[in-house]
């Protein structure tokens, strides 16, 4: 798996240059300058409405910045080299196996290769027993597990995760966190948002802290949690309500 990823031209680092986004005259995100290097495990933190989800969508390319630039190291095949897992994953009304197959078919993989990848993915994530079950009838935890497996099967260089476990119970959350950590160990660059401080401490190698649409701190996780420079970040860590 790693081999295939390595053959594709590396799309990282991702450079954001004074990136901003405004809609209807309202600026939601502005002045973001940031470099995401290959192999990072970046956790984006901030209060509700700080612009975390918007930030992920801009990086992933679901929307385009209205100011500044978003630049990948290689523009070639950059769409295929990323994947995203949403807070509430949308699974198609078909079987678990067919959900894994769908993005592979979109990439134009031949049938035999798809079948093999689907089988390997089911195996890798212990989904064999669920393979023929309708995906929509799985439990919340199983659904998110499938969404992560689907993203993994796409062999992304970078994986974006938007609050992937905020709707899940603790045991399901633990499984999701283990999956994210394993992906990271395999060399997949991770960019995720969370409002769960514990989760951020467990997973982050780097932290980006957003406040009211601006990036006010970006540092290695250890330094950040030891004592952030910005007052808003300190207040956030202390559990104060900030806005």
């Amino acid at each position: 798996m790693k081999i295939a990823r390595d053959i594709a031209p590396p799309i990282l680092p991702l450079s954001l240059e004074d990136m901003g986004y405004a809609v209807g005259g309202k600026t939601l995100l502005s002045g973001i300058t940031l470099r995401i290097e290959a192999g990072q495990r970046l956790v984006v933190m901030g209060a509700n409405g700080a612009g975390k989800s918007l930030f992920l969508r801009l990086c992933h390319g679901l929307i385009d910045p209205t100011q500044g630039r978003r630049r990948w190291a290689s523009d070639e095949a950059r769409a295929e080299a990323q994947a995203m897992v949403f807070q509430r994953p949308v699974l198609l009304r078909r079987s678990v196996a067919a959900n894994l197959d769908y993005p592979l078919a979109l990439k134009g993989l031949p049938r035999a290769a798809r079948r093999e990848t689907v089988a390997r993915t089911l195996d890798r994530f212990g989904l064999n027993d669920l393979a023929e079950r309708p995906a929509r009838l799985l439990s919340g935890g199983e659904q998110q597990r499938l969404a992560l497996a689907r993203a993994w099967a796409m062999r992304p260089q970078v994986l974006f995760l938007d609050e992937p476990s905020s709707a899940l119970d603790p045991s399901a959350t633990r499984i999701i966190e283990e999956m994210v950590a394993q992906f990271s160990d395999e060399g997949i660059t991770i960019v995720m948002t969370t409002h769960d401080l514990g989760q951020a401490r467990r997973l982050a190698a780097q932290v980006a802290f957003l406040h009211r649409g601006r990036l006010i701190e970006h540092r290695p996780a250890a330094e950040f949690f030891a004592g952030p420079e910005a007052a808003e970040a300190r207040a956030f860590l202390a559990g104060d309500l900030i806005w």
């Binding site: 679901l62 769409a79 295929e80 994947a83 995203m84 949403f86 994953p89 949308v90 769908y102 979109l106």
Partner: peptide, 12 residues
Amino acid sequence: AEYREQLLSLGA
């Protein structure tokens, strides 16, 4: 409305 982002993300 429900699928848009997910499908675009998957490459459709």
